[in-house]
Write a protein that binds this DNA or RNA. Structure first.
Lengths: 222, 222
DNA sequence: CTGTTGCATTTTGTATACAATATGCCAGAG
DNA sequence: CTCTGGCATATTGTATACAAAATGCAACAG
């Protein structure tokens, strides 16, 4: 238990500020379209404007903010077209992750996913939606890890962050929930069978359902 | 010819600095692994350190630089695995672009691409490699534009920038050149025929050839 | 010789000041 | 009434100053 081989985790204020802002955006506290006032936010986050501006650059690169010269930064408000475009790319990335995972998965990893699926079933049966979301996320993260392509994982992460705020706010009714759980079961079966085409197809269909849910909740807001 | 409806193009120093640094990296003047000294670069580019640091954040987001806390920024040196990972994702994105383009292309756009193909043939026949590269890039940009998915285009652009420096330095011999020209011809034929699967396959094969060229030139350097 | 410590210098991170641009409001002209 | 111009203020962009961390080198101990 010697700490000498355990390097300290280092961070900088821009990184911390970006993370904090990302959360505020995803949770809707900084709503789409909100203009970000540097002075106010720097006071609120307790940092000077310099690291805050660097944080803005990071979030703009992730597509969460838009920056126009001399007009500051604004939270991106995704249009229906933006959503469609993002889901199209997400589908390609998830499909790729599925194909890669099929070629790279170990039996132990399959067992791990089966255990997660059991957790998902339990959460579903107990109507425990937060637990369901947590396991859902864990399953997708695990798939990405099995795909073992960091470029893919990072590209997906940035894109997913944009959609996350919207998905956070879209509804999940019982029929959709039942269907999603069944889809996860099929996905893990396809992975265990090392059937790349099937897994790819299932991941894309699953994502299409999410897309419909997001677009439907955007309709309700308009 | 009234300029009143023609807004001035605005930029900021971080954006200009990022663009300049991107070029320096792609052309190899800032070689992979180079540590970037803020004072030197700010003098060289004629800007203060603040916009330069913002530019670093932008380039880091594109994967061209890596930033470690208190150790500044360094030009990314892509390993063979990085190259493989990036090409894998690029293939998925190009395949998607091909499929989307097939569904969205107009006859006029097909004619435009045929004209570009003729230019490419002429450059090839005249052994004019710079012109060939220019047209090659124009064809791929045109395909992306036809796909009409800005998220895809931006994702592709960031990823492509990482590989651009490596591709810039990889060799193109006569046999490969002949093959690449023929492949472009086939791509445009598939697009004209609205054959999404064929175009997807051709784009991915084409990219695989580029990947081999890049990896081969990395071998020569090691 | 190697390894450690101390210190000066350099570099990076952040705060603050200054400059440039945008915004909002009021007064005046038509 | 609307539109325009002028001005004060606020905000954003950038430069500079200060603080913190890293690096390099010399001296010393073993």
């Amino acid at each position: 238990m010697d700490g000498s081989s355990f390097p300290l985790v280092r961070s900088t204020l821009p990184e911390a500020a970006a993370e904090r802002l990302r959360t505020l955006i995803i949770e809707g506290e900084l709503a789409p379209g909100t203009k970000l006032n540097e002075r106010e936010l720097s006071e609120r986050l307790g940092v000077s404007r310099t690291p805050l501006r660097e944080a803005f650059r990071m979030l703009a690169a992730d597509g969460l903010l838009v920056q126009l010269p001399n007009r500051g930064a604004q939270v991106v408000a995704m249009s229906r077209d933006d959503v469609r475009d993002a889901f199209e790319v997400m589908a390609a990335l998830e499909g790729l992750a599925g194909e890669l995972a099929v070629g790279r998965v170990t039996d132990a990893e399959v067992e791990g996913l089966r255990a997660l699926q059991a957790e998902m079933d339990a959460a579903h049966a107990a109507h425990d939606l937060p637990a369901y979301y947590r396991v859902n996320r864990e399953i997708h993260d695990r798939l990405n890890a099995i795909a073992a392509n960091p470029v893919l994982a990072n590209t997906y992460r940035a894109l997913n962050a944009r959609l996350h705020a919207l998905r956070f706010r879209s509804n999940l009714n019982q029929a959709k929930w039942d269907k999603a759980v069944a889809e996860h079961r099929s996905m893990i079966a396809a992975l265990a069978a090392r059937d790349g085409a099937a897994l790819r197809d299932l991941l894309i269909r699953h994502l299409r359902a999410k897309q419909q849910a997001v677009l439907a909740s955007m309709d309700n807001k308009t």
